[in-house]
Every structure is written in structure tokens, then in C-alpha cells.
Amino acid sequence: MEDRNWLQLQELLEPIHVRAAALARRLCRSSADGDDLLQEALLRAWQKLSSLRDPGSFRPWFYAVLISVHRNRARASFWRRFVPLQRNGSEPEHDPAGEDGLLWEERRMRAHRLSNALSRLPAVQREAVVLADLEGYPIDVIAGLQQVSASAVKSRLSRGRERLRRHYQRLGLAPRGEPFPLLPEGEPS
């Protein structure tokens, strides 16, 4: 039974694997943490796959599992302080050289700065901001994933954005050049 579940999960996961892995990383402070989160979410999904009635709705179902696992990990964050985590964000496997290398390094620095800022938010606000502003999901979809009302999502989103903005203001940094172009509004990355 469990082997059959596992095979079915692999089939369902393959089309959304990249996006799910990216979402997990964006929710966490480091890529390693994100990969751990995804792995834990997959194990949870494997155990609960029998509760998935419609395979066509696997993506929102799996994202809801991912959000749930993320919330549990956030609750247990006190204990996790005592577990040394490898932060692969600061250990690149390769360093592009030349101008590309400079851009790549700057991008990593900026991504790291935002990850740090996001990690300061409560888990529910962090999820709302990542799902809305980084993943591009509409409010009603986020409400379904977080299993709360749309107004609650709006509140979380507003508070999360405000806290992020204040954090950036406190940093006292300002880009000298043009900001990085954003993806067109509403288009998931």
C-alpha cells in the first residue's frame, strides 16, 4: 500500500516539483532549510496521500501540506536553535567569473538579505507574503492554502509587507541604480 502511494506521489509530484522546491526555499532562510522543508512535506504527503480524493487537485493539496509543515517547523523553531544548520546559501558550488560573477554575487547577497528579513516575520505573515509577492497567487488561493478567510490573508499580507518595509527602512540602504525588474503582475515565477 505504501509502495503504491509512493509511486503515485512521484507521478503527481514530477510536474510541480520545481515550483514546490522553489516555494519551500523561499519560505525558509536558507536553501538547505528549504530542501529539508520540502523533504518533510513530501513524507507527510506520502503518509496522507489516501486523503487526496482528486489527483487533479494535487498541487493545492500538496501546497497546503507544505504550508502546514512549514508552520510546524516554525513552532519548533526554539528547539531548532540548538541544531546546527548548514547554510548552503553561503557555500556556492561554483562562482561565475567576470561581470556575470559580480551580478551573480549581488543577486545572492540581495536574496540573502530578503531571506533574513522574511525570517523575522511570523510564519503566517511570511507565508502570505511569499505566496502573494513571490509566487504571485491571488488572495483566495492563499486563503485556501492557509485555511483562513480572505480577510485574514489580507491582514497578514498587509502586516507582513509593512514589517518588511520598516525593516528595509531601518537598514538605511538604497539602490544606487535601477531596481531589478519585477515579473509581470500575477505571473507565477
Binding site: E106, P179, L183
Partner: peptide
């Protein structure tokens, strides 16, 4: 905004 794109 720039940092969000970098993180993406």
C-alpha cells in the same frame, strides 16, 4: 522589489 526578484 529588487531583492524579491533576486530571491526568485
Amino acid at each position: 522589489k529588487g531583492d524579491m526578484e533576486a530571491l526568485r
